[in-house]
Write a protein that binds this DNA or RNA. Structure first.
Length: 115
DNA sequence: CGTATGACGAGCC
DNA sequence: AGGCTCGCCATAC
């Protein structure tokens, strides 16, 4: 396909439930690249905004948004529309909204669905 | 093929 | 706490 890793990241992100968020590192880990946080950023960056991928649910490990002020505002609006509440510092409490993650079996199924 | 780039992360000062 | 540096991984040139 397009790119194995690209597709995997695509699928992983699509698995994040509305109203919850995951970190770049977490997505990278689920995609099979433990230290590929930056790669996830690259992949999402390459995705068209009108994609079906809920890219707004991917934030950094600090619970804050890493985009430029413009995209940052859009992402925040999208998340708030899903019920995610931002703290006074403009950060999301990962303890409350952080994605619990996929079950090992589910993860394996996704990763193997496209060699 | 070597260098540069980036929506990150963890460590150090 | 805040800011800076280095490491990591996959493309682009």
């Amino acid at each position: 396909m397009t790119s194995s890793l690209f597709e995997q990241i695509f699928k992983i992100v699509c698995c994040i439930p509305a109203g919850q968020v995951a970190t770049y590192g977490q997505v990278a880990r689920l995609a099979g690249v433990p230290r590929g946080a930056r790669t996830v950023g690259w992949a999402l960056r390459a995705m068209p905004e009108d994609s079906d991928v809920p890219w707004q649910r991917v934030i950094n490990a600090q619970g804050s948004l890493s985009l430029d002020p413009h995209g940052n505002a859009i992402q925040r609006a999208l998340l708030e529309a899903e019920g995610v509440v931002f703290g006074p510092e403009g950060r999301v409490d990962l303890r409350l909204y952080g994605w619990a993650g996929l079950e090992p079996a589910e993860r394996e199924q996704i990763l193997s669905s496209e060699p």
